[in-house]
């Protein structure tokens, strides 16, 4: 019972840290509401290392995600005839936006990710970065899906790699 409670408290702390990191990533990108892509970037922050490991198992470079996210915006604008250069591109700002006041308010894709994390919380123990990878890789459309396509990463392979990583990490976890 004590171990269960401890694991639950750890999960809550991890989730809180993930949300804060995702918001930081969003503010760096001049957005106030973190989306799934910012949660994924936050998960790749080397805390437990499982998100990065999942990417590497799928043959993907985790460092290529951020540039791919930026490029999918540029490609989308280019597809309708708009080409941005230099400092006119959103996301080229150096300072993050100030954090908005009020309650935590993720973008819809961030909300969807948090709902899936909440729905599958019984399977976490502990919650790992690879859980975020598995959920975002399963999102068929949106920024993450487009960025993964640009990276030539098969989302199905990435999801499987994340699941294998989770299984390996959980089998080594105490308790």
């Amino acid at each position: 019972m004590f171990n269960g409670l401890k694991a639950r408290l750890n999960d809550m702390a991890t989730l809180r840290s993930l949300c804060e990191q995702a918001e930081r990533q969003a503010l760096l990108d001049q957005q106030t509401k973190p989306g799934a892509e910012q949660f994924l970037l936050a998960a790749l922050d080397p805390k437990d290392g499982t998100a990065r490991l999942a990417f590497e198992k799928a043959g993907a470079d985790p460092a290529a995600l951020r540039p791919a996210i930026a490029r999918q915006y540029e490609d989308a604008l280019h597809s309708i005839g708009i080409r941005l250069t230099g400092g006119t591109r959103p996301g080229t700002e150096r300072r993050p936006l100030p954090a908005p006041a009020g309650i935590y308010d993720p973008a819809p894709s961030g909300q969807a990710l948090m709902q899936e994390l909440a729905a599958s919380r019984k399977d976490h123990r502990p919650l790992l970065g690879a859980h975020v990878v598995a959920i975002t890789a399963g999102m068929e459309h949106g920024v993450v899906a487009r960025a993964l396509r640009l990276m030539a990463v098969d989302p199905g392979i990435l999801k499987s790699a994340a699941e294998v990583t989770i299984k390996g990490a959980l089998s080594r976890a105490p308790g």
């Binding site: 957005q31 999918q72 989308a76 959103p90 459309h141």
Partner: peptide
């Protein structure tokens, strides 16, 4: 898919211009 991606990118661009 491409048209909707353009909508998302335009919204982001509009946000940046607004800011």
């Amino acid at each position: 898919e491409a048209a909707l991606a353009a909508v998302v990118a335009l919204r982001r661009l509009a946000d940046a211009i607004e800011q």
